[in-house]
Amino acid sequence: MTTETTPVRPDPARTKGRKAGFVGLGNMGWPMAHNLAEAGFELVVHDAAPELSRRFAAEHPNATAATGPASFHGVPVVVTMLPNGVIVREVVLTWDGGIASALGPGAIVLDMSSSNPSDTLELGTALEAGGVHVVDAPVSGGVPRAVTGELSIMVGGRDEDVAAVQPELQVMGDAARQFRAGGPGSGHVLKALNNFVAAATYCATAEALVVGKTFGLDTGVIVDTINTSTGRSFVSELVFGGHAVTGKYATGFQLGLLAKDVHIAADIAASLGIDAPVTALTDERWAQALSAVGPAADHSAAHKAWSEVDLTRD
């Protein structure tokens, strides 16, 4: 039996009128920024698509669209929710001089993207001279939990910096789902490992459905059985039960992003000299899917790269 708990939220006195920046208003970033605005944060927002920034500002009276890095002057925390660490670095360091050029000593870049930990460490080193720090806090839970502000958050960074960004973190993700991974970069390591496990589970589930349907079983029955048995997982229940066997393919999470996270996990294992054959094979499978189905496809459609068997329910 599962027990639902009331989300732990910060004191409104710590959020109302608090300034923050938010960069990246995509499927995940928009609801995350919305929750900050609803909690009373005064936001400066930016997206590679300027119309998104302007629309967000138009819909949230306490938000303004950045016109350049100078718009972030005096902001103590800048949240980044971007596709990868290379783009984070570009926005923070090189976009028209970089957002970091407008930040004062003690400011924090709160990177909630799924970045490579090596990129995070390099960014932290680059920002040291200006007294700006990095907290890596990637998330899990998808768009539904981004909307409700109940994301799981894996946090890496210095203790004092992690403490400083708790008002932001506790609005976007319930404190009960916040996991302290360790020092800088460790949050991104933990996120990559989590997504590798999800991706490996997807591979196994897809194979089971292909074998079962080829034998003559109904994929809906297979998924229903798995979801009430020992094979049950988030992947079998939501990704396959809600999308692959219905043909919906609309989880909101792009295939390219999951393939990237799996590759990060494989790189970490290789750099540590770990014998991790499942990691390597999962990386290979998702690289196949990336090439065949494309990065913009919903990740629930990855199985199309590995088999021509139609997994939709009979």
Rank of each mutant, 00 (worst) to 15 (best):
M1A: 15
R9Q: 13
P12F: 04
A13V: 14
A13N: 12
R14P: 05
G17K: 09
G24M: 01
G29N: 12
A37G: 12
F41W: 07
E42V: 15
E42K: 13
L43G: 06
V45N: 10
A48V: 15
A49H: 11
P50C: 01
P50G: 08
E51W: 01
R55M: 09
F56C: 09
A57L: 11
A57E: 12
H60V: 07
P61D: 15
T64Y: 09
F72N: 08
F72S: 06
P76K: 11
V77K: 09
T80N: 05
M81V: 14
G85I: 01
V86K: 14
R89H: 15
G97S: 13
L103I: 03
I108D: 03
V109Y: 04
V109M: 12
M112H: 06
S113I: 10
N116G: 06
G124H: 00
L127F: 02
A129Y: 04
A129L: 06
A129T: 13
A129S: 13
V134H: 07
S140W: 00
G141S: 06
G142A: 08
G142V: 03
T148K: 11
E150W: 03
E150K: 11
E150Q: 12
L151Q: 10
I153Y: 05
V155T: 08
E168S: 14
M172T: 11
D174L: 12
A176S: 10
R177A: 13
R180N: 07
A181R: 02
A181V: 05
A181K: 00
G182P: 05
P184N: 11
V189A: 06
V189T: 12
A192E: 03
A192Q: 10
A198L: 15
A198K: 00
A200E: 08
A204W: 04
T205R: 00
A208V: 04
L209R: 04
V210K: 07
V211S: 01
D218S: 11
G220L: 04
G220W: 04
G220P: 10
V223G: 08
T230G: 13
R232V: 12
R232C: 12
S233N: 09
S236H: 03
S236W: 02
V239G: 00
G241D: 02
G247Q: 01
K248N: 10
Y249W: 09
Y249F: 13
F253G: 04
Q254D: 11
L255P: 05
K260D: 11
I264L: 12
A265L: 10
A266K: 01
L272Q: 12
G273C: 08
G273N: 09
D275F: 00
P277K: 11
T282Q: 02
D283A: 15
L290G: 06
L290H: 11
S291C: 02
W306D: 08
D310W: 04
L311A: 05
